[in-house]
Design a binder for these strands. Structure first.
Length: 414
RNA sequence: GUGAGUGUAGCUCAGUUGGUUAGAGCGUCUGAUUGUGGCUCAGAAGGUCGCCGGUUCGAAACCGGUCACCCACCCCA
């Protein structure tokens, strides 16, 4: 049994579950296309450097979570741990004319070598969008609105939209310095994790869960007060835009997010009840310089964890729509009847019906039981006596009524 | 990477202080109805008790190891 199981943190998705996936994928396509976004499909692996610079050398993703390997030519390749870096690489390759924007969305598997837990897999799936090429507060607003719209279209409620600003790349070192200065005097109160973050990523201390440290964090310099006037103004416009749209959000000065490429607006959509995880989607504005490109490209986007969406949908009891079902089941008694039914099945399928039939000459009862199990709406029953008369019995499985139809009227109609 | 919990039939799970032939419900198949489903009833099939080793007259149970799942920490979608 163990040998047939998929690798830890991966899973097989069987047909009965595929309906859920398709439900979500459908919502992804219809929602994002309404905003003028087109689907971009990039390879599942890339040269490792594509991820290194954009995601950030110091992030956990790069440091310990990437599936990196060498190909036969000795090149370092990596299974994509997230979507944005690949999208930027692809867009840069396609060429973005000066001053134009590109709007794309993607759906697909991502890979991170973490310890699996509820709502966290090694191969997981994300649906995301990227608006690349331009910088304007209202682009960020539309992006957040699109996420809000998407979640509502799925029927997910009880979420929280958190937003914050991290300022622009050039002012970040100064902010980090202020934070470092402040936190350095509380080293004696810090746990292991925070001590490590002090040197690797001070920002992250802000969203530490260490209870004993909360008071220190509350009194820390607020990012919004350290921002430049320009950044503060940008963020103000984003908030005003969200107000205009009536989108429910909270400003969370402690929201920093993990990836290095973010600047200005960052946001996260939270939902309680995905085990210990609460992020359903996250994103923000960024500046990324794909390898081989001279100027970094600005963009804004988000990614949504599809497995987590599914957990939320289950939690809320949202239904995914019906399983495909069966329009007709063909019951054959004897070899001759089976041959006729093979033709009939082919014809009915050609007319667009969902048709199944018994192919092994079982008893009538067994065939009808199967038809019932498949929830077939109708059964066509064909045996010797029907063959003699040139008819077939059509049985309505809901009210058990039967009618006779001439075989020649059914077949060769066209 | 660290820590906890779990592993018995296709599925969900019982299984007494270690004691004959390892159970139930659901599902599957067959029959009651020689060619008519669902409901009911009767019956059947289905298990290396995760794997390896140890203790014991005797292990699904106890001990050690190992693998897997799962949850939490970390981090994130």
């Amino acid at each position: 049994m163990a040998k047939t199981e998929p690798l830890p943190g991966t899973s097989d998705i069987f047909p009965d579950e595929t309906a859920k996936w398709q439900f979500i994928e459908e919502a992804v396509r219809t929602t994002f296309q309404r905003y003028g976004y087109g689907e971009l499909r990039t390879p599942i692996f890339e040269r490792t450097e594509v991820f290194l610079k954009s995601i950030g050398d110091e992030t956990d993703i790069v440091q310990k979570e990437m599936y990196t390997f060498e190909d036969r030519g000795g090149r370092s390749l990596t299974l994509r741990p997230e979507g944005t870096a690949s999208v930027m690489r692809a867009l840069a390759n396609g060429g973005i004319p000066q001053g134009e924007e590109r709007k794309v969305f993607y759906i697909g598997p991502m890979f991170r070598g973490e310890r699996p837990a509820a709502g966290r897999k090694r191969q997981f799936h994300q649906a995301g969008v990227e608006n690349v090429g331009k910088i304007a507060p209202h682009i960020d607003v539309e992006c957040i609105a699109m996420l809000d719209d998407f979640i509502k279209n799925l029927g997910i409620s009880k979420t929280r939209m958190l937003v914050n600003s991290r300022g622009v790349l050039t002012e970040r070192p100064q902010i980090a310095e202020k934070l470092h200065e402040y936190f350095s005097s509380y080293k004696h109160l810090m746990d292991e994790d925070n001590l490590r973050r002090l040197d690797t990523n001070v920002w992250r201390i802000l969203d530490s869960k260490d209870e004993k440290f909360q008071e220190v964090i509350l009194n820390a310099p607020r990012i919004d007060e350290l921002l430049s006037d320009e950044s503060r103004d940008y963020f103000k416009k984003v908030c005003e835009g969200l107000d205009v749209l009536g989108i429910d959000y909270e400003i969370d000065p402690r929201l920093v997010r993990g990836l290095d490429y973010y600047e200005h607006t960052v946001f996260e959509l939270q939902f309680d009840g995905i085990g210990a995880q609460n992020a359903l989607a996250g994103g923000g504005r960024y500046l990324i310089q794909p390898p081989g490109i001279k100027k970094p490209l600005p963009g804004v986007g988000f990614a949504c964890g599809m497995e987590r969406l599914m957990i939320a949908l289950d939690e809320l009891g949202v239904s995914y729509g019906e399983e495909p079902g069966t329009d007709a089941y063909l019951v054959s008694l004897g070899e001759e009847a089976l041959k006729v039914n093979l033709k009939l099945a082919h014809q009915l399928r050609g007319e667009g019906l969902k048709v199944q039939m018994d192919l092994e000459n079982r008893g009538m009862k067994a065939q009808l039981r199967t038809a019932n199990k498949l929830n077939a709406k109708k059964c066509y029953i064909l045996g010797d006596s029907e063959l003699d008369q040139g008819i077939i019995v059509l049985k309505n499985m809901e009210d058990s009524t039967q009618t006779e139809i001439k075989i020649e009227d059914l077949l060769n109609k066209g």
